[in-house]
Write a protein that binds this DNA or RNA. Structure first.
Length: 346
DNA sequence: AATGAAGTCAACCGCACAGGA
DNA sequence: CTCCTGTGCGGTTGACTTCAT
């Protein structure tokens, strides 16, 4: 018996998402939390299949997504992790907070493959960045990595048993969300949502002040919404209530001091106005703003976490240190002196 | 300025897997 | 144990943008 299609193909809209659809989806998830995707089109009135909704959320709208150019740091990580893990993009993505597997996959296919190919050509001429690593060294290095990953996993597992330290060093889409009592590092999908809200913010006198502490506004009516982006012109959307611009304003505020160094600490009182310019990670003061559905018990952290949890919570620094420190080859080789087949000792 | 090629990336497709009934 | 549903994942597509001629 064949598997039925994930959704009724008739009347299902395909292609790029409109800002209106995005807002409907975000609003719905803000209200109900992610999960139960099959119910999303029905409950929101979106003419999208559940899969499409999930994809849109996880790859574009989900908090914690960083867009734009990959840093050299990220690039190196991808290269190394791809060598280690193969095309397991989700696993690779779990080591790169803020990046989606789709993003990484695209970046690999469009940039890195080409780049490595060039490197390979250069390698023939003895100019490759990898020239210092012979094939044998590379294999051994992979072995080291496996060992390192195992060790990191062990560390993570043991940490899990007693962990209360949720440093921002963890994928904000997963572990950093649930528990911080005073402040959640709530990373927006940045440009996208900011684009959606750009005009709202622009037209709002509140654009330069701190976010409202009136959480009730976030539940205001969404009727007659008009979005001033691009081709958008439809006056009202959806069959559900969603935040007004003010409501979203109160929901999303960016931490302008955030940078790629995710290990830095974040002040609990650091609330910055959400603007397109500082779009990036933003924070929600959970004790001020009512965001029940982004919390663990409502299934938010269940999304995309179940499988990735272990990988995500591997201390990044351990792997990163290894991954990025090309100059570290010698040390790694020394490490290789340690018995490779060493047993898991956790 | 026009046109075609190449590049980019959001979104789709279909398979696999987990878990509940 | 089997079936069914929901979800995750990797590969691929195609619309759009940028670049080169």
């Amino acid at each position: 018996m064949g598997r039925p299609p994930c959704c009724d193909k008739i009347g299902v809209k395909k292609g790029p998402w409109t800002p209106e659809e995005d807002i409907i989806l975000v609003s719905y998830i803000q209200e109900h939390g992610p999960g139960n995707w099959r119910a999303v089109p029905t409950n929101t009135g979106l003419l999208r299949c559940s899969k499409s909704c999930r994809l849109r959320w996880t790859n574009y709208l989900r908090p914690g997504i960083k867009r734009g150019n990959f840093t050299e740091h990220e690039e190196k990580m991808i290269i190394h992790l791809q060598a280690l893990l193969g095309n397991r993009w989700a696993a690779i993505a779990s080591y790169l907070p803020q990046r989606t597997d789709n993003d990484i996959k695209n970046y690999w296919n469009t940039h890195l493959q080409k780049k490595l190919k060039n490197d390979d050509v250069n390698n023939q001429k003895g100019k490759s960045s990898f020239q210092s690593i012979s094939k044998g060294q590379w294999e051994r290095r992979l072995q080291t990595d496996i060992h390192t990953a195992k060790q990191a996993l062990c560390d993570a597992l043991s940490l899990n048993k007693k962990t209360t330290d949720f440093s921002p060093n963890i994928n904000p889409s997963t572990s950093s969300f649930p528990v911080q009592s005073s402040t959640n590092t709530y990373a927006s999908s940045a440009d996208n949502i900011s684009r959606l809200l750009q005009n709202w913010m622009k037209n709002s006198p509140k654009s330069s002040k701190s976010i409202s502490n009136n959480s009730a506004t976030s539940q205001s009516s969404f009727n007659n919404l008009s979005i001033g982006t691009g081709s958008s012109s439809s006056p009202s959307v959806g069959t559900m209530n969603a935040p007004t611009p003010e409501g979203l304003d109160s929901l999303f505020s960016f931490n302008s001091s955030y940078n790629s160094d995710v290990s830095q600490s974040v002040s609990a009182d650091e609330v910055v106005v959400f603007t397109p310019e500082n779009a990036g990670i933003f924070q929600v003061e959970s004790n001020k703003y009512n965001l029940p559905n982004f919390k663990d018990e409502n299934g938010f952290s269940q999304e995309g976490i179940s499988k990735q949890n272990l990988e995500t919570e591997v201390p990044l620094t351990l792997l990163e240190n290894w991954l990025f420190d090309d100059s570290n080859v010698q040390t790694q080789e020394e490490l290789m002196g340690i018995e490779i087949g060493m047993e898991w000792n956790c």
